[in-house]
Design a protein around this nucleic acid. Structure first.
Length: 483
RNA sequence: GGCCCCAUCGUCUAGUGGCCAAGGACACCACCCUCUCAAGGUGGAGACACGGGUUCGAAUCCCGUUGGGGCUGCCA
C-alpha cells in the first residue's frame, strides 16, 4: 500500500479556529505517523464569503503550530474548469437534473411533509439548464449508503431519507460536496479526517464519488469523523460567543508546543496516562482508532496550566527568548508582536541583563508569557505604578507601615548591597518594630514594586540599586504623609 | 419534525467482560514549604444518565428510555 495522503481543507471564511486546528493536527499527526503526505486545500468555492487575507491567517496559524503542508495550498477557485468538466460528465450520465425552485417555493410545498428537505419537484420535469437553474443530484430512491468510519464503525444512511441535493449553483459554481469529492479523487486522498459535523453529508459525497466512477473506479478514501470541540454550553464553537481564533491564544502568550499538546488531548490521549508529551511521542503513538467518540470542551484553564508547565520546562535562555516580544521591542521576531503593543516601559530603560537575572524567578510564576511584563515592570519604569488597593490595605491601613519603612530606610543606608545581606537587615529591621518578615515585607514590596505580589523581593532590590530603592522608600513615606 | 452521532468525577480522560468497592490530570478545599505570590509536596471531596436484558460475572455486549449535540442552505 502506498503512503497515505490526507488533507486539511479549511474554508477561508474566518481565522483558523481551534476546532479546525485540532482537525489539522490530527491529519498532520496521522500523516507523520504513517509516513504520509499532508495536503492543504483551500475551499473557497463560495466567493461571497471567502477572503484571501484569511488564507494567510490560516497558513500562519498552521505554521505557528509547526504544521506546514507537504503539498499545496491548492485553491478550489483555481479549478473551475475541472469542475465544469465533471458537471458535464455527471449531466450527460443522467445523474443531475435542473431545478428552478426557489427556497421559498420548496419550503411552502414541504412545510407539512413528514420528511423534510427537497421534494423532488423538478426531478422528472426535464428542465433545460439555464442561468436560473441549479443542478440537483438524482439520489437513488431505495437502498442505503454506508459510511465505513475508522472511529465510529459503519454508519448507515437510507436513501429514502436523503433528498436530491443541489451540487451546482445556478451560477455554475460547484457546491462543497461536489468540489470536495472531485478534489479528493484528483489528489488521491486516502484518508478523510474531519469534524463529525460533516458525517451527515458524507453519504452524499460517496454517491457523487460513485457516480463519477463510471467505468473507471477510484478507490474511496477511508473516513474518520472527529468529535466536535465544543464550548461550555456543549455547543459547536461560535465565532461570536467563543474565543476561537488560534491567533488569540498566541497573542495571549501561549507557547505553540503547549497549545499543540493541549489540542491533541481533545479527543485523544497518549498511552500510559501521560498528558504532557513531546511531539515525537505524539507522532509515534497517534492512532485514529484510539480517538474518542464524544465531543470535548475546550478548557482554557487546563490549557493555561499546561502552558505553565511548558514555560517552567524551558531553559532560562529559552524563556528569555520566548518572553522577548513581551519585554523588548527589539526582540520582536518573525514579523509578529503581541497585540498588547510595546512593553509599558521606554525601550531605553530595558536592560536585558537585568531581565535575564530575574528571569528564573519570573519563569516559575507565570502561566502565560503575557504575564511577564507586570512581573518586572518596576525594574524598568522610572517610578513603580502603585496598586492603590494594595496601598490602602497593606501600607496606609497598616499602623506599622511607617515604622517599617523608616527602619529599613535606615538599615539600607549603610548596609552591604547584596541580596542576602539585604534580606538579613530587612529581617532585623522589621523584627525591631515588632513584626516578622512575612508580614513586614508587604509595605516595602509595595513601596518599591508597586504591588503586593511578585517575584522574591531581595534580588530585584539589589538590581535596582541602593539609591533607587531609598528614593522609592522616600516617595512612599511622602505619600503616607500626604494621606 | 426527519436522519445521524454521542453519554465515566464540574472539565479532559484511563478503562475494550473478571486486575474497578473505577485510575490520572485541570479546577476546588485543607495542610506542609515559604520574604509576598506562584511553583512544589501531602491529603480531601468528586463519576460509570436511567431501566431492562445477555453472562457465573458488566463501566465494558444488546434493547429501550432520557439527556446532549450535529445535519436538514443555490454555506462549508
Amino acid at each position: 500500500m502506498s503512503a497515505p495522503r490526507v488533507r486539511f481543507a479549511p474554508s477561508p471564511t474566518g481565522y483558523l479556529h481551534v476546532g479546525n486546528a485540532r482537525t489539522a493536527l490530527f491529519n498532520w499527526l496521522f500523516a507523520r505517523n504513517q509516513g504520509g503526505v499532508f495536503v492543504l486545500r483551500i475551499e473557497d468555492t463560495d466567493e461571497e464569503r471567502s477572503q484571501s487575507s484569511l488564507v494567510e491567517a490560516i497558513i500562519g496559524g498552521l505554521s505557528w503550530l509547526g504544521m506546514d503542508a507537504d503539498e499545496g495550498p491548492y485553491y478550489q477557485s483555481a479549478r473551475t474548469d475541472r469542475y465544469a468538466e465533471v458537471v458535464e460528465q455527471l449531466w450527460s450520465a443522467g445523474h443531475l437534473y435542473a431545478c428552478d425552485c426557489t427556497r421559498e417555493e420548496v419550503l411552502a410545498r414541504t412545510r407539512d411533509n413528514p420528511i423534510p428537505g427537497y421534494d423532488g419537484h423538478c426531478r422528472d420535469r426535464a428542465l433545460e439548464r439555464g442561468p436560473t437553474t441549479a443542478l440537483r443530484f438524482r439520489t437513488p430512491e431505495t437502498g442505503t449508503t454506508v459510511v465505513h468510519d475508522i472511529i465510529r464503525g459503519d454508519v448507515e444512511f437510507p436513501h429514502s431519507a436523503m433528498e436530491d441535493f443541489v451540487c451546482v449553483k445556478s451560477s455554475g459554481q460547484p457546491l462543497f460536496v461536489l468540489a470536495n469529492a472531485v478534489d479528493d479523487r484528483d489528489s488521491a486522498i486516502s484518508h478523510v479526517i474531519r469534524g463529525d459535523d460533516l458525517l451527515p453529508t458524507t453519504p452524499k459525497g460517496i454517491l457523487l464519488w460513485e457516480a463519477l466512477d463510471g467505468a473507471d473506479p477510484v478507490r474511496l478514501p477511508a473516513f474518520a469523523h472527529l468529535p466536535q470541540v465544543v464550548n461550555e454550553q456543549r455547543k459547536k464553537l461560535s465565532k461570536r460567543r467563543d474565543q476561537v481564533a488560534v491567533e488569540y491564544y498566541r497573542d495571549k502568550g501561549f507557547l505553540a508546543e503547549a497549545f499543540r499538546n493541549y489540542l491533541a488531548l481533545l479527543g485523544w490521549s497518549p498511552p500510559g496516562g501521560r498528558e504532557k508529551v513531546d511531539l515525537q511521542t505524539m507522532i509515534d503513538e497517534f492512532r485514529l482508532e484510539d480517538i474518542h467518540h464524544a465531543s470535548a470542551f475546550f478548557d482554557v484553564k487546563k490549557l493555561t496550566h499546561l502552558n505553565g508547565e511548558y514555560i517552567r520546562d524551558l531553559s532560562t535562555a529559552a524563556f528569555v527568548e520566548a518572553a522577548g516580544p513581551w519585554v523588548s521591542p527589539d526582540r520582536v521576531t518573525a514579523g509578529w508582536a503581541p497585540p498588547t503593543g510595546a512593553p509599558p516601559w521606554p525601550a531605553e530603560r530595558f536592560d536585558e541583563q537585568v531581565f535575564a537575572s530575574v528571569a528564573p524567578s519570573v519563569q516559575g510564576r507565570v502561566s502565560l508569557l503575557s504575564e511577564v511584563p507586570a512581573m518586572v515592570d518596576f525594574l524598568f519604569l522610572a517610578e513603580p505604578v502603585i496598586d492603590e488597593g494594595a496601598w490602602t490595605t497593606r501600607v496606609f491601613g497598616d499602623p506599622l507601615a511607617r515604622r517599617i519603612l523608616e527602619a529599613v530606610t535606615r538599615a539600607y543606608e549603610d548596609s552591604e548591597w547584596h541580596r542576602e545581606t539585604i534580606q538579613a537587615v530587612t529581617r532585623a529591621a522589621v523584627e525591631s518594630v515588632g513584626t516578622n518578615l512575612s508580614k513586614g515585607q508587604a509595605p516595602i514590596r509595595i513601596a518599591v514594586t508597586g504591588r503586593s505580589v511578585g517575584p522574591p523581593l531581595f534580588e530585584p532590590l539589589e538590581l535596582l540599586g541602593r539609591a533607587e530603592v531609598l528614593e522609592r522608600l522616600q516617595r512612599a513615606l511622602a505619600k503616607l504623609d500626604a494621606g
